[in-house]
Write a protein that binds this DNA or RNA. Sequence first.
RNA 1: GUCCCCAUCGUCUAGUGGUUAGGACUCCGCCCUUUCAAGGCGGCAACACGGGUUCGAGUCCCGUUGGGGACGCCA
Length: 652
Amino acid sequence: MAGARSTGLGPRDPMRSRRVHQRARSHRSPPPGRPAPHPRRRGASGRKGWTLPALDPRRSRERAVGMRQRQGRRAHRIEEGHRRMSELVVTRFAPSPTGHLHVGGARTALFNWALARQLGGRFLVRIEDTDQARSSADAVGGILEDLAWLGLDWDDGPDLETANATLGGDERGIGPFYQSERKAGYDAVIASLIERDLAYPAFESPEELDGLRREARAAKQNFRYRRAREFDRETALQRARDGEPHVVRFRMPEEEIAVEDRILGQIAFGEDQLDDFVIRKRDGFPTYHLAVVVDDEAMGVTHVLRGQEHLGNTPRHVALQRALGYREPVYAHLPVIFNPDGSKMSKRDKDKAGRLAVREALTLDEAGTRARLDGELDPAILDGWIADKKAQLSGTDLASIERLLGLELPGIDVEDFRHAGYLPEVLVNFLALLGWSPGQKDAEGKDVERFTPGELAKQFSLERVGKGNAKFDRAKLLAFSQETLGGQDDAEFQADWETWCERYAPEALGHLQGSARARFAAAMKPRSRTLAEPTSADGPGAFALVGDDTYGFDPKAVGKFLDKGEPSGRQLLPELRQVLAGLEPFEPEAIEAAVGAVAEAHCLGMGKVAQPLRVALTGRAASPALGDTLAILGRESVLRRIDRCLAECSTS
RNA sequence: GUCCCCAUCGUCUAGUGGUUAGGACUCCGCCCUUUCAAGGCGGCAACACGGGUUCGAGUCCCGUUGGGGACGCCA
């Protein structure tokens, strides 16, 4: 029990907790139109019946030295059952629309979605756009589309039309789902808090506070804002009424606040760490803390799963809920996702990498780099971005830089992975494993690691979410993708690949007409780790996506397979050309048989004949199976390519 | 500086007092083979450290070390 450790209070006293609860409840007043909160099996008093602490001498001794309650999860499982019968489970994903959906956010959304589906509840999406400076409508659209693409359908929230469904809607009458449209509600809550002297106006300027924080830091002290003893309420209220700029702060109760976390256990925050935090900003908008608490209550949210960076905010939210007589949702804080280098995976990572690369390019060749970038990027924006570590460029600008400078920026956003050719179910599968595991073995005793979103929804439980932070391992994601793609049937793969092409590489499809397309897709399936690889310029499928006279011949391959041998590969080509010119049908099996016959006639192994042909047709020593390669190209191309090879790769 | 969280192969993890510590990814080897893949088989590799508790500790407790998070009129 962290609180006991930190505050030196010794054994946790269930009665003490109960007093807190009762006091909190005493000023509860259910909001109009909503049923009164029913008591819950919760906290120390609720758990007591299941763990029987007093009957187990060992356990009570351990508690006396401050042991965290390991039995908690069992009790929770039972509690979850109770909740399921008595109450609709509601989870939510509440992004702030300041950019694309990144994978960390996607995982949070995924777990919320999975929990709601698992418990037969509802999953809602709410847009937290109280930050006027940074929120944008574009970002909202992008995030919603990313969620939909991942297959995380929401029951309540902003509307989104997709190909096969309309998501969102407000069946329960709990909207709107944009916090910027819910301002009146927050104002009413804040007014009532001020009325009861649970909140008060504060007039320090940001600069003043900054100074205080710096001072505290210099004195190696911890800064926290608490209402001064000599604070005069009437004067303050009058100044506020007179229009003096101010924020509103919540009067944090002066007592330890314990948070029951479904993943981490019980965590207590001592009174000395809590401060009177701001609930309404100078611009009149509520802060995250106030808005999230008010909205979660109004929208009936029962389970809050969020990143661990929010753990320290939880006592604030709990205090607010108690002051307002709200129900306390179940909390579960998810471990953080890291980059392979151990740094926190952040939405700013791409900017960071890009900035570094641009700076490097600038140092090497200032004028040249500028010339390349200036066409697509506003120089002023670019310079600002280079100078400011925290600045973020738009996705299109970042993509321009990536393309113009030939970089590969690290994928962070869901859109990045979509672009990179990952199937949504692969990303979902992989993301789910970052922190959660099904804990099941298959028939061979191996861990179950591959599952569909549907299976995840069936299996998911908070008990199986780990506490440790996880690194995002791209190699494993790639392997998952390859395995999934390889397991598809040819038609399925082709359809997914074509869909990807339509969005990201429409010109590629133009090269593959008629039956060649299906043949190409089938040949590329086992050779592709992502949907982007078939069209990769240096991939095994590149030969089919270039004109008959635009590809080059790899000198090493030419040297090895055309120049050498007795007869040399080159000498075999005219004969092969002739055989192929008259071959009917021009199909893989017939082609391989015909080439095999030529080999046999010269008492050569298949390789001695196939490789020269392969080099002539593709310019390289590697391509799909020979029959497939030829059939994909078609007879005309094949003959033209042999002719060009003969002409261009002459002996020198 | 204060507070909080975390700790099993390089990575993701299984493991809830008695296991030859299991799986997956990566890497390496072999087989298959007209190339590249794919596929099959096999291998390397971990309980951070120190104290307790216990007949017995990866599992429970304490400490150390290491990693991470928070300390905004961002969310």
